[in-house]
Amino acid sequence: MPAVGLYVLFQLLAFGVLWLMSWKADVSPGRFVGAFDANWFTAVATHGYDQVPTVLPNGAPGENSLVFFPLYPALTAVLTFVGLPALPAALTVSLLAGCAAAWGLFVLGRDLAGPRVGLLLAVLWSLGPGSTALHLAYSESLLVALVAWTLVAVSHRRWLLAGALTTFAGLTRASAGALVAAVGIAAIVAICRRQDGWRPWLGGLLAPLGLLGYLGYVALRTGRLDGWFWLQNAWQMHFDLGRFTWIQVREGLTANTSSWITVTAIIVLAAVALLLWTWCTRLPVAWHVYGALTVLIALCSSNYFQSRARFLLPAFVLTVPLALALAKLPTRVLAVLLPVGAAISAWYGSFLMAIAHLAP
């Protein structure tokens, strides 16, 4: 309950900062809550995937809702059946999923190093630089909830549950591929150790079904095996081995004037440093695999540099060594540090939307 309670408290704080920044910019905060990707998710929840894939005169694909994975809008649609409008339903899904994620992260940290670390792991994730997405109609909170409880299942060697949860994660975001790999490698380790009989075999085979199933569906709709990746080109998004990120980081650190690019560049470098720190920390192999691949996916995609903090949000493994270090501090010190960190993080996300007019 403390983990869930602090999660809700910091989300309220962040939304308050968004309201203040919106007031300063003379716009309504409601304009941002349902904007950007939220428009696409609520459209899918309301109308399904009713758009026909199109090709523009230059040969590029037109923007299409098939890029957005189905589980989050499906849960939103379920709530619309009981009378909620699409946007409030989507925000409800985000809130409940965020609470489930905080609970799962607490369990992970508690099992690793005690309740204090579990609480800090949940809190640090909830106030990360990309946490603005947690109180918007975005699917990050749902993905992290599924990832957290999947890793709990793996640690308890409940392979069928881990495989099933990974299937659902694969229907949430493409970055769930990192979790598929983590569960698969953990299952292979268990098989090599001759543990748990046939269960790791089945769990490992279940893990990729959601992701592969949806990519296959998009391939059928587009008539291309690479259909989902092709549709991403409508947003100039593709895997570029980190070239775009490196160019933006270099610009942010060498420009004559500071901007949101500079702040985002610092966040990217901090994420790389934290990843290196996790490699020096004794963690389960599935955690290492998941964390490394999530960072790789987040930093090696082109375009939308301002979204790097949000893309890194599912990489909560990066906060584990920080949680272990902060757990040694007195509670009164944490009572100051954590709210200050939450306020700074909320300012960053709110500035992007209300002042810079960029998607988080």
Score class of each variant (00 low, 15 high):
D111H: 13
I266T: 09
T46A: 14
N233S: 14
I297Y: 13
V8A: 15
V27T: 15
F316I: 11
L105A: 05
Y290Q: 07
G109A: 06
F81M: 13
G223F: 03
L241I: 02
R221L: 12
A74L: 14
T172Q: 09
L79V: 06
A271N: 05
G48E: 00
V180T: 06
H238S: 13
T54I: 10
T42L: 12
T278H: 03
W40E: 04
A286E: 14
R199W: 07
L206I: 08
G252S: 10
L112K: 00
W125A: 08
A315C: 06
F81T: 14
G48K: 11
R157G: 05
L119D: 10
G204C: 10
Q51A: 13
G216L: 12
F15I: 00
A3R: 01
L12M: 14
V55Q: 14
V189N: 09
T150K: 11
G210I: 04
L20A: 15
L312S: 03
F15R: 06
A327T: 03
F316Y: 13
V55K: 13
G213Y: 09
V218N: 10
A342G: 14
N58V: 01
A25R: 10
W228R: 00
F10Q: 12
L225M: 12
V152Q: 09
A164M: 10
A145Y: 09
P2K: 14
A162K: 06
Q236K: 14
P57V: 04
T80L: 07
W279C: 08
G163A: 10
V183G: 08
S94N: 09
A89W: 02
T222E: 03
R193D: 11
S345D: 09
A298N: 02
T42Q: 04
H238A: 10
S65W: 05
G128Y: 03
S141P: 08
S65I: 09
A133M: 06
A164W: 13
R224T: 08
V285L: 15
P360M: 05
Q51K: 13
R199F: 01
L142R: 04
D111N: 15
V4L: 12
L112I: 00
P73E: 07
L276T: 10
S65C: 02
W287F: 14
D50C: 01
V333D: 00
W230G: 05
F36N: 05
V189Q: 13
G349N: 09
H47Q: 12
T319N: 07
L56R: 15
V4Q: 10
L225Q: 09
A89P: 08
A153C: 06
Q51Y: 03
L12T: 07
